[in-house]
Design a protein around this nucleic acid. Structure first.
Lengths: 200, 200
DNA sequence: ATCAATAAGATACCGTAGTATCTTATTTAA
DNA sequence: TTAAATAAGATACTACGGTATCTTATTGAT
């Protein structure tokens, strides 16, 4: 009687974790990342801060988890186009991204990006959520298809050129706020095809 | 006698401001941006936090001011190379950037960029890159030189390809934290030359 | 059914960014 | 020379990220 009236059931494990992630996702969608507080998430989930910090090392990780759970599903198994030309394959792949990126409300996530930037993990740091690790294998596959048609040599590609699509996408999203078919077509025609096929 | 022994002279205005900036610059060069605290700056300047906040709205602004006052002066009028080849011209231009960048002591300023990113809308920062860059006129001149040698056609270039060098540079700095001759050479050979010269 | 392990709850705490308030020294104008 | 305006000093405060500690509910193995 001394404690809270609802004290009957104490959530644990997955149930509690789900509730926290749901609260975090609700908050990031209402107040945005910057104004989302760990205490606020805890309160909304009817949990406490230590519960959050037992699971996620920091705010950025928590919100990233919430994004991965509730955000637009970035299909890990999007079919890789195989249309018969490098250009069309790239356009096909990027076309799938237009829908996805337009769905996720980029302005809410700006603070997340900045927070991530502060962490020193040097290498692939400049990545939006988990965006690009998912893209690279598909690029590679498209290039292999092109190689079999004799359009290019995969061995000529480098880490830098393989990463270029992601760099361009990030610049497009962060710089212009949108991804359109027109901009993606320009990227492919003006930059990616020349780079991939134009190696000496 | 009850108060501090040096209580005779109370600094104000420019003298106080200079002392604060000096303290901030000293600290950012010893502990780095992340570990620099406003209280620490105040203490080192023998001032107090309100003195800082009366002048600068936040930590990032203060450190930026200190940087502008004491940091290396950035040359605005780098000569545009004219070596006889597009590749060498690009390498020459970027080589100048390596020197400049390394002179900034970028590693001490780690979190500054991220802090700025948070407050300056990200799109603004990239918009700054995508157009108002001090680099673009130089790129254009280099391309015109190349055109006169018959290496390429300037009319084939687009806003997107003209911005590509800046995009790559930003990615390099934000993603890797450094600018090296090796990375710039790779950019030029693997991406920029194919894009500029490889247009159909 | 009991008890040890686990993990949630509650709470207090630390460090830092940034703010508010009040007192006091210095400047300036009368 | 005095008094009003200005701005520094001191101090305490709030908000937030993140940590530590202790108590208590729940699980699950015996």
């Amino acid at each position: 009687m001394a404690t809270t009236d609802k004290g009957q059931t104490r959530r644990r494990g997955q149930a509690l974790e789900d509730a926290v992630l749901k609260a975090a996702w609700d908050l990031v969608n209402t107040v945005g990342y910057e104004k989302l507080t760990m205490a606020g998430v805890a309160a909304k989930a009817q949990a406490t801060k230590p519960v959050l910090y037992r699971r996620w090392p920091d705010k950025a990780s928590l919100v990233t988890s919430a994004f991965l759970k509730f955000g637009p599903k970035i299909k890990r198994d999007l079919p890789v186009p195989d249309t018969g030309s490098l250009r069309a394959d790239l356009l096909g792949l990027f076309g799938q991204l237009v829908v996805t990126f337009n769905a996720l409300g980029a302005e809410k996530l700006q603070g997340l990006v900045a927070d991530r930037l502060k962490q020193i993990p040097v290498d692939k740091l400049f990545a939006l959520a988990n965006g690009h690790s998912m893209l690279e294998p598909k690029i590679t596959q498209i290039l292999q298809q092109a190689e079999q048609r004799g359009e290019l040599t995969v061995a000529d590609q480098t880490a830098r050129t393989l990463n270029l699509p992601v760099v361009l996408l990030i610049n497009e999203v962060l710089g212009h706020g949108t991804l359109t078919t027109a901009s993606l077509t320009a990227m492919v025609d003006e930059i990616l095809v020349p780079v991939f096929m134009g190696q000496k």
